[in-house]
């Protein structure tokens, strides 16, 4: 970097100046690194708005994709498909995750809990594409068809450890005295948990669930060979269904300009959905922190 400080008649003063200079240089470097870390978000958002906003018209939300070669069309089916998949994922991920979180926070011994927490965190790190393979073997092969059920299941399984950990965290925050008060009144344990503890922590649990939804809403890899994608409306959940991320992927790697335009529009819509969920959660939990 810089040349070493020259030997001077008063080395201590020079060394001190060098040390101060170095400290300032490092501060600046770290500040620049921080900017570099934040930059991608702004670049991505900028290009999403620039490329996607113009393509995001009424047709986008109301029409089916047009066949290859024709311009226009939209992603209505993918929008609905994503909602359907998220609903199914929620049906699996939310009850199992919340109940698991309840067990960790309210029952269970330290040793068992530590083990379950450990595996839940490890499970969170399993690549999403692997969930696609597992569900493919579990639901697609036996029923011999790609289906909305399989896609929903893949996302749902991914949600379980996410929801479980956040539920546990908020339940632990509920003061012990609430539970003791319930016990003193002779209320059954399960009622204490569901009526008192969960009600107190409801906002936190909902927040955690929304974060989990935001996380799986953008997942593409687990849907590739479960939900598969579909250019038409899905009339039967046992058949392939379209989803926003799948459609964006398919359009992005296609050779047609109009499809690229659609991909940007879809990405913008998906991003708005996910960022919206995240910002909403942030607002809600800031509320909670204040009160």
């Amino acid at each position: 970097m810089e040349p070493r400080p020259p030997p001077s008649p008063q080395p201590t003063a020079a060394v001190a100046a060098w040390r101060r200079w170095k400290s300032r240089a490092m501060s600046l470097t770290m500040g620049l690194c921080t900017l570099a870390v934040m930059a991608p978000l702004f670049f991505v958002l900028y290009f999403l708005l620039r490329e996607g906003a113009s393509a995001l018209d009424w047709n986008f939300f109301t029409q089916l994709p047009k066949p290859t070669g024709e311009t226009g069309g939209g992603m209505a089916n993918a929008l609905v498909g994503t909602m359907v998949l998220l609903t199914m994922a929620g049906l699996i991920g939310v009850p199992v995750g919340v109940l698991g979180g309840i067990y960790l926070a309210e029952y269970g011994s330290d040793r068992v809990n530590r083990l379950i927490r450990f595996w839940a965190d490890v499970l969170n790190g399993v690549p999403s594409i692997v969930w696609g393979m597992v569900v493919y073997a579990l639901l697609v092969v036996p029923f011999k068809t790609f289906s909305a059920y399989a896609g929903g299941a893949a996302l749902g399984l991914m949600m379980i450890p996410l929801v479980m950990r956040t539920t546990e965290e908020v339940l632990i925050l509920v003061p012990q005295s609430y539970r003791e008060a319930g016990l003193a009144l002779g209320i059954a344990r399960w009622k204490i948990v569901t009526v008192i503890v969960m009600k107190t922590a409801l906002k936190g649990i909902v927040t955690g669930v929304l974060v989990a939804f935001a996380r799986v809403a953008g997942e593409t890899a687990p849907l590739l060979f479960t939900a598969l994608g579909n250019n038409f409306w899905n009339r039967n959940l046992a058949e392939p269904i379209a989803a926003m991320p799948l459609q964006i992927f398919a359009y992005a790697i296609s050779p047609y300009d109009d499809w690229h335009r659609q991909a940007w529009a879809g990405a913008l819509a998906l991003m708005v959905l996910i960022l919206g969920l995240n910002l909403f959660v942030r607002l809600v939990s800031r509320d909670r922190a204040k009160s």
Partner: peptide, 24 residues
């Protein structure tokens, strides 16, 4: 604010990074 920006970066779906990667 910086922490929020970084957390939002974590929320961007993989496929959107991919799209941005291909074209930008």
């Amino acid at each position: 604010p910086v922490i929020t920006v970084i957390e939002l970066l974590a929320a961007v779906p993989s496929v959107i990074f991919g799209l941005w990667g291909i074209f930008v």
